[in-house]
Simulated scan of single mutants.
Amino acid sequence: MPTPTPTRTPAPAPRPSAEPAPRSSATPVHYPRHHPRPAGLPAPDRTSPVTYVLLIAIPAIVAVAALRPR
């Protein structure tokens, strides 16, 4: 005995919103232009990045040399 295929009930129609859709403004919005500030000069006594690399690398190299198997 074949089983009957169920019929789909149609989805209810969406109700219209009680509030009207927002309107776009009559005049376009303008923002002030971005003016990046010029980069300042580096401080004369600043530490070089190479110094920081050496401060980390030299103790690490010494530790590896001291801990290697003999």
Rank of each mutant, 00 (worst) to 15 (best):
S24F: 05
R15D: 12
A60D: 02
S25G: 11
A11P: 04
P10C: 06
M1C: 09
T51I: 10
I61Q: 01
A57I: 05
A39W: 09
A63K: 07
P38I: 01
P22E: 04
I61S: 09
R70H: 07
R68P: 00
M1S: 13
H30T: 11
R33H: 05
A18K: 11
I61Y: 01
R8Y: 12
A65L: 14
A18R: 13
R37D: 15
P49C: 02
E19F: 05
V53F: 07
A66V: 13
H35F: 08
A60Y: 05
V29A: 04
A65T: 12
I58E: 07
A65G: 14
V50R: 04
H35M: 09
V64Q: 09
T7E: 14
S24G: 08
P49S: 01
Y52R: 12
R70P: 07
P59S: 10
H30G: 00
R23C: 01
A43L: 13
R23V: 09
P16D: 07
A60G: 13
I61A: 12
G40S: 14
P49F: 00
H34C: 02
A66H: 02
D45F: 09
R23P: 00
T27K: 05
P4F: 07
P49I: 02
Y31T: 11
P12G: 09
P6V: 07
A39Y: 08
Y52S: 11
A60P: 00
P36H: 05
A13I: 14
S24D: 11
A11Q: 15
R68Y: 00
P14C: 11
T5Y: 00
T7W: 02
P4G: 12
R46A: 15
A26T: 14
P69Q: 03
H34I: 05
I56C: 06
I58M: 08
A26L: 12
P20Y: 04
R15N: 11
L67Y: 00
I56N: 02
R37Y: 08
M1D: 12
I58L: 14
P42K: 02
P38R: 09
R37N: 13
P36W: 03
V64G: 10
Y52W: 15
P32H: 00
P16Q: 10
P14I: 08
I58D: 05
A57E: 11
A63P: 03
V53A: 12
A60H: 01
P4R: 11
P28K: 03
R8E: 15
P44K: 08
L41F: 02
A57Y: 06
P4T: 15
R70M: 01
P38N: 03
P12T: 12
P36E: 08
L55E: 13
Y31E: 10
R33W: 01
S24L: 10
P6I: 07
P36Y: 03
V64R: 07
L41K: 10
P4A: 15
P36T: 05
P10M: 08
P49Q: 01
P59A: 06
P28F: 00
P38C: 00
R15T: 15
T3I: 10
P12Q: 10
V50P: 00
P12R: 13
S48Y: 03
R33C: 01
R70I: 00
P69H: 05
P59H: 06
I61K: 00
I56P: 00
V62A: 14
P42H: 02
V50F: 06
V53T: 11
P28T: 02
P42V: 01
V62Q: 03
T51C: 05
P10Q: 14
P16F: 01
M1T: 13
T5A: 04
L41A: 14
R8S: 15
P16C: 02
A65I: 07
R15W: 03
S17I: 01
